[in-house]
Design a protein around this nucleic acid. Structure first.
Lengths: 169, 169
DNA sequence: CCTCGGTATATAAATCTTTATATACTTTCC
DNA sequence: GGAAAGTATATAAAGATTTATATACCGAGG
C-alpha cells in the first residue's frame, strides 16, 4: 500500500539501487516496513514511470551494473505530502501474536518453553537495537524492553504455579 | 498466510458464522490479526472443502439465514499443530511506523502535532483495552503504556527545545 | 580452472488483502 | 407504507506480497 512512499523516504538519504533499498529494508526493523526484492524492483519501475525518481546506470566493481535511482523534485514533494498524513494506530497482523493470544490453550510446560524462546528473540533484538538516536529507535527500544519485562513476568507466573491466566473464552 | 488458522482458533470458542468471525477479528486488537469479511468468506469455504470445519444453516431472527461453522476433529488437530509452531518476532508493517521513522524530517510544530494526535489514539486504545485476563491482553496493555510514555517523552523533549533527535541519515 | 558466495537485476506464479459492489431479510422509526 | 439501520452472505477487480526461479558479474579459495 505504501511501499513506493517508503522507497521515496529511503531515497531521501541519497541515491540507491534496488538492491541497496532491499537490504536496508530488511536490516532496519525500526523502520516499520519490510519488503522483498521482488517487490522493490517493480515498485521502482512504477516510480520511474511516474517521474518520482530518475535512473542512472553505473558500473560496479563487483557484480553486474547497478541501476541507481535518485529522487526528483516531484518525488520529494510526493514524499513530503505522504509524510504529513496523520498517524493511525497500526493494526497488528502477525501469526506470532495470534499464537500468543491462544497461549493458554497449551499445557504449562509448552507455554513456558514458547515464552522462553520468544524472550530470547526479544533479548537478541534488544541488543542489536541499542542506540536510540531517533524517535523511532527510542520507541523501538522502549517497546522491546517492555515486552521483555512482560515475557519474564509471564514465565515467572507460570513457574510459581499461580497461573494468573484464564482460558480465553 | 494464516487467516485460516486464525479462524480455526476463533471457532475453538464455539460455532460461529462468517459475520461473527469478521466482527470478532475487527473488535479484538489483542488478537493480533484483522481481516475483512470479503476475506473471511472465501477462507471459510476453503476450510469447509478441506474438511476442517462443518457447516450448518440456521434461520436467524433478524437478517438472512446464518451459515454457522464448527470445528471438526481435523480442524482441531490442524489448529493445535499450528499453535505449537515456534514464535517469531513479528516484522512491523505499518505506514504509521514509517512516518514515525521519518518524523525528524518535519518541522518541530508538525512533529509535536503528530505526536499529540498519536498520543491521544494510544490513550483511547489503552482505556478500551484495560482488563488483562490473558497473557496476550496483559502484553498489549504493557506495550500501550510503554508507547504512551514514549510519546509523552518525545513531545516533552521537543517542547523543551532540546530536540535530542538527529536527522535520520 | 571451477565452484562458491556475495552482489545485482528481474519475471512468473501463487497467494493474500483491500475496495467496491450487489443482494436480501428484519426491525424500528417516521 | 417507506426509509433507514443492522445483520448477513457473497463476488469481482484491483493491488500488494511471497515464493520460486533465472540470469549475470566478480573475487577468493581449493
Amino acid at each position: 500500500m505504501s511501499l513506493p512512499h517508503v522507497l521515496l523516504a529511503l531515497l531521501g538519504r541519497g541515491p540507491a539501487s534496488g538492491w541497496d533499498l532491499g537490504t536496508r529494508l530488511a536490516k532496519d526493523p525500526a523502520l516499520g516496513w519490510d519488503a522483498d526484492l521482488a517487490q522493490v524492483y517493480p515498485a521502482l519501475r512504477r516510480l520511474l514511470r511516474g517521474g518520482f525518481v530518475a535512473l542512472r546506470r553505473r558500473r560496479s566493481s563487483k557484480g553486474p551494473p547497478r541501476r541507481e535511482y535518485r529522487l526528483t523534485a516531484a518525488g520529494r514533494r510526493e514524499f513530503r505530502e505522504w509524510l504529513a498524513e496523520p498517524l493511525a494506530l497500526p493494526k497488528p497482523h502477525a501469526a506470532s501474536l495470534v499464537r500468543l493470544a491462544f497461549l493458554e490453550r497449551r499445557p504449562p510446560e509448552a507455554r513456558l518453553a514458547s515464552l522462553h524462546l520468544y524472550r530470547d528473540l526479544l533479548a537478541d533484538e534488544l541488543e542489536r537495537a541499542s542506540s536510540g538516536t531517533t524517535a523511532a529507535r527510542r520507541r523501538r527500544l522502549l517497546l522491546l524492553e517492555a515486552e521483555l519485562a512482560w515475557a519474564d513476568a509471564e514465565a515467572a507466573a507460570i513457574l510459581s504455579g499461580r497461573t494468573l491466566s484464564k482460558e480465553p473464552r
